[in-house]
Lab assay of single mutants.
Amino acid sequence: KHLIERYYHQLTEGCGNEACTNEFCASCPTFLRMDNNAAAIKALELYKINAKLCDPH
């Protein structure tokens, strides 16, 4: 559950690194913003595939 919350935060708030290159992070310049419901679904999907989590900045 904690990991899913981290994915959700990364998708909605980002890691804080303006030069982030993680396509699944709101801080990445090319990230496409999504609403909270879509972010919750995506967080579950990312958890299932063990996607990369950013280190908070």
Rank of each mutant, 00 (worst) to 15 (best):
K1C: 03
K1F: 02
K1V: 02
H2Q: 14
H2Y: 14
H2A: 10
L3Y: 12
L3T: 14
L3S: 13
I4F: 05
I4V: 10
I4H: 04
I4W: 04
R6S: 11
R6A: 12
R6E: 08
R6C: 03
Y7Q: 01
Y7D: 01
Y8H: 12
H9V: 12
H9N: 11
Q10A: 06
L11K: 01
L11D: 01
L11R: 01
T12K: 08
T12A: 06
E13V: 08
G14S: 00
G14Y: 00
G14E: 00
G14H: 00
G14R: 00
C15Q: 01
C15M: 00
C15H: 02
C15E: 00
C15F: 00
G16C: 10
G16M: 05
G16H: 09
G16E: 10
N17V: 10
N17L: 08
N17P: 08
N17C: 10
E18M: 13
A19Q: 14
A19C: 06
C20T: 01
T21S: 10
N22Q: 03
N22K: 01
N22I: 02
E23N: 15
E23Y: 07
F24V: 11
C25H: 00
C25S: 01
C25M: 01
C25P: 00
A26T: 03
A26H: 05
S27D: 06
C28A: 12
C28Q: 06
P29E: 14
P29G: 08
T30R: 14
T30W: 12
T30F: 12
F31L: 11
F31I: 05
F31W: 04
F31N: 14
L32T: 15
L32P: 15
L32F: 04
R33A: 07
R33P: 12
M34F: 09
M34V: 11
D35S: 12
D35H: 04
N37G: 11
N37D: 14
A38R: 13
A38N: 04
A38K: 10
A38Y: 15
A39W: 02
I41A: 13
I41T: 12
I41Q: 15
I41D: 14
K42H: 07
K42A: 05
A43S: 14
A43V: 04
A43C: 07
A43D: 01
L44G: 15
E45T: 03
E45D: 04
L46R: 01
L46G: 05
Y47N: 13
Y47R: 14
Y47L: 14
Y47H: 15
Y47I: 07
K48G: 04
K48S: 05
K48Y: 02
I49F: 03
N50Y: 12
A51D: 09
A51I: 02
A51M: 04
L53P: 04
D55N: 13
D55Y: 05
P56A: 11
P56M: 07
P56F: 15
P56L: 14
H57C: 15
H57P: 12
